[in-house]
Amino acid sequence: MPQVIIAFGSNMGNKEQNIKTALEKMKARGLNIIKVSTIIETEPYGYEDQDTFLNGACIADTNLSPQEVLKELLAIEQEMGRVRKIHWGPRNIDLDIIFYENIIVDEDNLKIPHPDAHNRSFVLGPICEISPSFLHPIYNKPVKELYEELKKQNH
């Protein structure tokens, strides 16, 4: 069964409960979550005039295609009342497909691997915890190596 790695985040309302609810909704929508990272508190990325985030990542087995996974994640965000007003702005829940197996998808509405994941420590750190040897299909490097390189750049 294919595995998908999904990053999640929340910085509005009850952040921990938002994440818990989203994970439960994923399980009910064909994403069998097998591993969840530690949830970390992070500073906002991009648009900085907002509350801190809780971020993490999970690995799920699924029979859904990448487009079907995207459809389900967007439906969960909508069900939970996510409003997209400001790019990189505040959100009660954010669910992003980072990797789907080792495939590369380049469609108008879906890019896998996530095109900016390698620049985001709040994405790579949690993925590194749950799947450090996962090989990025474009950079052909383990996530752990990409995370170490990113930490060096930011110091």
Rank of each mutant, 00 (worst) to 15 (best):
K71L: 13
A117S: 04
F122S: 12
T62C: 12
A60P: 04
D116N: 07
T42K: 02
I40C: 06
Y45D: 02
R29D: 09
R29T: 06
H114T: 07
I103C: 14
V83P: 01
E24A: 14
R82Q: 10
E72A: 15
S37M: 02
I5T: 05
P113S: 11
K35Y: 02
E107K: 14
I33R: 02
G30I: 09
I40P: 00
D61Q: 13
V105R: 10
G89D: 10
D49T: 13
I59Y: 03
A57N: 08
I112F: 11
H87K: 15
N11C: 10
D106C: 09
E77G: 12
R91I: 10
G81R: 11
T62G: 12
S37H: 02
E24T: 12
L31F: 09
R120D: 02
R29Y: 05
R29K: 15
P90G: 14
L74T: 07
R120K: 12
D49A: 14
K35S: 14
A117N: 00
I39V: 15
R29W: 05
Q50A: 03
K35I: 10
P66N: 14
L31E: 05
I5G: 03
I19L: 14
I39L: 15
Y100D: 05
A22S: 14
I98T: 07
L54I: 06
A60D: 01
K25A: 12
D106P: 04
L54P: 01
N55L: 08
A7T: 04
L31G: 06
Y47F: 15
L70K: 00
I33Y: 08
F99V: 03
H118W: 04
P113C: 06
V105K: 12
D61Y: 09
A7K: 06
T42Q: 00
G56L: 04
E79T: 14
G46Q: 09
L64C: 11
A22L: 11
I34Y: 07
K71P: 05
D96H: 12
I112A: 07
K15D: 01
P90Y: 09
P113K: 01
Q17G: 03
